[in-house]
Nucleic acid binder design. Structure first.
Lengths: 204, 204, 204, 204
DNA sequence: CATGAATGAGACTTCATTCAT
DNA sequence: GATGAATGAAGTCTCATTCAT
């Protein structure tokens, strides 16, 4: 019985995270493709190969799933951005790194991108965004630091942070969306040019 | 009797379209605030002071209402842009006019802006956008002409049109959203500076 | 003004009965084709070229329209049957006349037939039928007389009236329906044969 | 615990199909009595003691329920007819068996009969009937064989099949309806006489 | 009288969530 | 823990009927 129990525990340890991940992965795909309201919980359950009730063991309800999934994706973006980021490099280089990473990562993970866009333009996202931007958050701290530094060193235009953000990342979001929807096609050269153009928009 | 008759005609002329407009106005407001799925038809009817069935006299179904409302808003943007637009002015000036108009109009009509954003990031909007961008449309023709001309005259960077669009309007959308959500505050000076920065992003 | 008024009155006199007939005719057609519940009042109004409200000037409500229409059709059948009916002819000849008339009339007025069938197999028809058959009615009096006479004269089988009715008219209804739905095709020879066979079913 | 387990299994086996059957049974009753349009899904659910949504687990929509119910009833009629049918007996005897069975079964299952009649005279039934009669179907094959054989052996009149069908079964349907609606009362003797009379209508 | 826009009760259906197994 | 059948609140839409014009 001891053996049996420990076995079950092991099974749980190994199996449970797998199940949660299955749900997350499938939910991401379906939400990104069909929208939040076009994706019943039962559809996620079926495609994830779990019972509908199981989803409620991992997420209190559908809204929580949607919100946690968004948090997951943000975290993934942060990891991508921080990978290879060197705070000792010049402002320009650091910006190029961040911007290029965001664009490349968005393009190579179209589901992530579409999910985030959808989320941010839904009632879910707005309140979240409000909480977030007014408070603190890691990724923005990184960016905020970079931009504050840039302004202080007179490398960047002397504009409010949100304005600089808009100038720098607005085009990025726009072109990523176009690419993902197939309205334009980016390659590495174009990406680099594009990012440099973004830099042009904020540098003094 | 003449007077009475003409009065009756006036009442008809003023009243019937009034009902359709009430619905449109209320629907815009509620959709922009609560999202498409957060706004039951019954809620629109109640707030518009009409019976639920009445909405279906003017719009075949909820989706049609959503789509027509979007078309309405696009038309309004177009009207705003075309007002004061002079095709004989230099490229730069024309661009500044368009960009400033879009930004000002978005800011002074936050419901319009939020509705459009929401629409374009929903299953409704994606297919529509696809049809639209690949085909022809008045507003884009205007912009397309302007940008093509700019590229030909070597006033603008030699980049694909969608890339120029992204560089020029991506920041605009971003800052408008921020302003509307209260994350940053724009004034006329800032708007002008901002628009000039956008120009900086695309001019050669 | 006198002239004007009398004109209007004339118009009314000529127009009003026409309007009622239009409604009746269109309602018959639509009900027969789409069923009672597949035919909104508004559809009848539109096809009849009248306002929806007008129908309610001639018929208290939809149910009344349906019932009156049925009564109309029954009357028409009676007229057809009585035309050429000679109570002095032998039983057999009289029956042949009636049966052949019913069959021919049904076939040449498929809408009438389908309406009646539909009516009799709906909640409308059942209660009506109950009222009717238990009471008296012209057409059945004619038939009842004929059949009673036939039984009394020992020309017909000695069976209860409803049984004789079923034997005599059951096949008629069945073949008429088949013909109208296109499952079998009758010509005058076949009709005569058929009616004779029906006679064979009840004659002693 | 063994006993308990087996009990639980039994409950499942007995209960789940029980729910579908409850729905079918109640739906039959209500449709037969009130008509298809006089019977909201909610009414069926309530009387069957299930939630409204449950009906949609078993039947895609109301129409499917209506159609499947009809198919069910047809199957039941076929089973009744085939029970005791002996293809080696003479034509006459076989016909008498079939006709008597149909009549008796109709009379003892008035709800089945009324449901079928209603169905066949509704938009549901007409298209179905068309598909059916023009194609092949078990019960009609049985009858078709019998009648073809009868015609070939010169036992039956030399008439098209639909005509023979009408002569043979038209009276049956008519008298069954009368009986069920209480307009005439059949007993076993009368049934036999009646069926023999039907035979008289088709035999040479 | 005629009209048809307006109404709202009520029908069908979906789906987030629960809970017995 | 896992399951998925069951639930019923809530949403979309239709249509018989009314009534101001």
């Amino acid at each position: 019985m001891n053996i049996h129990s420990s076995l079950m525990i092991e099974v749980k340890i190994m199996d449970t995270p797998g199940k949660r991940d299955d749900i997350i992965r499938v939910a991401l795909e379906l939400f990104a493709e069909n929208g939040f309201h076009g994706t019943p919980v039962a559809m996620i359950a079926k495609k994830a190969g779990v019972g509908a009730g199981t989803i409620y063991r991992y997420f209190e309800n559908k809204d929580v799933l949607i919100n946690e999934l968004f948090a997951d994706l943000e975290r993934k973006f942060m990891v991508a951005i921080e990978d290879g980021y060197n705070p000792n490099k010049p402002i320009r280089e650091r910006f190029i790194h961040i911007a290029a990473t965001i664009l490349k990562y968005s393009i190579s993970h179209p589901l992530y991108f579409r999910y985030i866009e959808q989320y941010q333009n839904s009632p879910y996202g707005v309140s979240f965004r409000r909480d977030k931007l007014l408070g603190k958050s890691d990724d923005h701290d990184l960016l905020r630091e970079l931009f504050n530094e840039g302004v202080a060193q007179q490398v960047l235009k002397d504009l409010p942070l949100p304005v600089l953000f808009a100038l720098a990342f607005g085009p990025l979001i726009a072109i990523a969306r176009d690419h993902i929807l197939g309205f334009s096609i980016l390659n590495d050269t174009l990406i680099l040019k594009f990012v440099e153009a973004c830099w042009g928009g904020i540098k003094r």
